[in-house]
Amino acid sequence: MSGYMLRRALATLPVMTLVALFVFLLLRLSPGDPAAIIAGDMATPAQPEQIRELMGLNQPLYLQFFIWLGDLLRGDLGVSLISHTPVAGMIADRIGPTLSIALLTMLISVTVAIPMGILAAWRHRKLVDHLVMTFSVLGFSVPVFVTGYVFVLVFSLKLGWFPVQGFTPISAGLWSFLKTALLPALTLTTIYVALIARMTRANMLDVLGEDYIRTARAKGGSEMRVLFRHALKNAAVPILTVIGTGFALLIGGVVVTETVFNIPGIGRLTVDAILARDYPVIQAVILLTSFLYVLINLIIDLSYSLFDPRIRY
């Protein structure tokens, strides 16, 4: 068991290394001199040379990569070109709002989407099914920021239930946190629910066609028993998988939502960094979210065996 977990964890190393290499090359191989890009338009002719020296850009590419990787492993994510403060610290300051909204979104989505998907599969081709499918295709089709603005328009500007913008951390009290975080979370929920509900429905439909479901009915089990005890556990693995892979989608959504609601999180940090061409920050954010993605999916992979005994370690 633990041997397998170790091997599975080690198997993420190549992927993480590839991600790091990719992010490294992103800046180094893009057209133009990285030093000149970093120095910016207002640079004096001497500045690029200084930067090159400072960042070790005169070294061979592979050596640069390993130096950079070494810094990464020591937790050194570089220094912002704009604020000249360590990137790690900047991220640490901003991660709270982002994580709390992402977790709130995940929580709401999973509680809502899985029952929705089950219901839709159970009442296949009935009204409920059509409603769920309509909601889910809308969730994929309406851009997050449009949903966000519509929510602001209706719930904040017209009804006055929530503040239009801003963020209060959870340390300032659950209620004030929810007042600022609920609307962004609900905005993000639309995509995530769409994704999970759709996957749940599709897999429940597959499973409900299986022989053992007929056996469960032949035992005289109630529909609740058939759906939850027999079907859901069998459909769990792909649903878990999509919750994990959907994390990438969620991160994209957070970036946009933070802009709409003006929340000082990683998303705002990224957008500001892009507008200012602050490359170390962009690099660090991409690396961090990718590693988080790999980590979440590793945990989900390892949890499969809780649901399916055929997956053995």
Partner: peptide, 8 residues
Amino acid sequence: MTALNPVL
């Protein structure tokens, strides 16, 4: 094989 629930 298919008539028995594989996860119970």
